[in-house]
Amino acid sequence: MSVSAYITNIARGSLHDGPGVRTVVYFKGCGLSCKWCHNPETLSAQKQILYIKSKCIHCGKCVELCPECHKIQGSDMLFLRENCTACGKCSDACPSLALSLCGEEKTVTELFEEIKKDQHYYTASGGGVTFSGGECLLHSQFVKEIAKMCKDKDIHTTVESAFFVPWKNVEEVLPFTDLFFADLKIPDSEKHRKFTGQDNKLIIENITKLSNIHSNIILRIPVIPGVNDSDDDIDAFAQIIKTFGKGIKEIELLKYNNLAESKYDIAGKEYTGFAEKTQTNEEMQKRCSAFKEKCSKNCYFV
């Protein structure tokens, strides 16, 4: 029997997230809840209905089908999430795509059909597939199966993970993963708990282990203004990175943006990110140099 998982999105033709041209698969569910999360719709492990108010044309189809969740109030359409069981009837009927079901259940075979469609682009560019999320390693059995199929067809595989998962999940996908993106968010454990809901002990433990037995890991650090972007933070990051094994090839700093804000409303969450300040390219460049010097690793920002 084929395993299945909830997938929120399959982005084809991506030029980031690994070498070459890539298909990025976003899994649903994550053990962390970072306050700046860019994919809030992937946080919950359950299916859910997303509602884009601006697309609604007030046709009332959803009200007819499901009066428990959808109500017309004056010129407004209300979506009562607390009653929603994500049955998908309303999103099926919604003509304008204002309502959509996030988290399509896909089997390994179904997903592979989709991945295969761009195989000639992978071959030409040295690209492949990237498993992201959410936390893809919460679905390690699924990722293992699909990654194995990819490797059978010589498709490059990348796992992007925050590593807040049991070590055995990592071990499971290890043989079929060419490249890991390991997210490292905040060096201080307490602060980590404050901003992501969990401390970083397990994460650091996992990355340490992995970096001793896998040769192709890129550390990804999201630079969040006021959270982990001070000089002291860089020092603290460097302290941790030094304890990692040889497998860490380079460090990628992610420049902060607040583009995700609109996605929060759609997913029925409150945006708690940091709207005001973003870094300039010069600042990022300076930070890269500091990382390079302190960790003796190549470092760049995107």
Partner: peptide
Amino acid sequence: LLADILLAS
């Protein structure tokens, strides 16, 4: 990469 895409298609 765009060159790769062009050639592959």
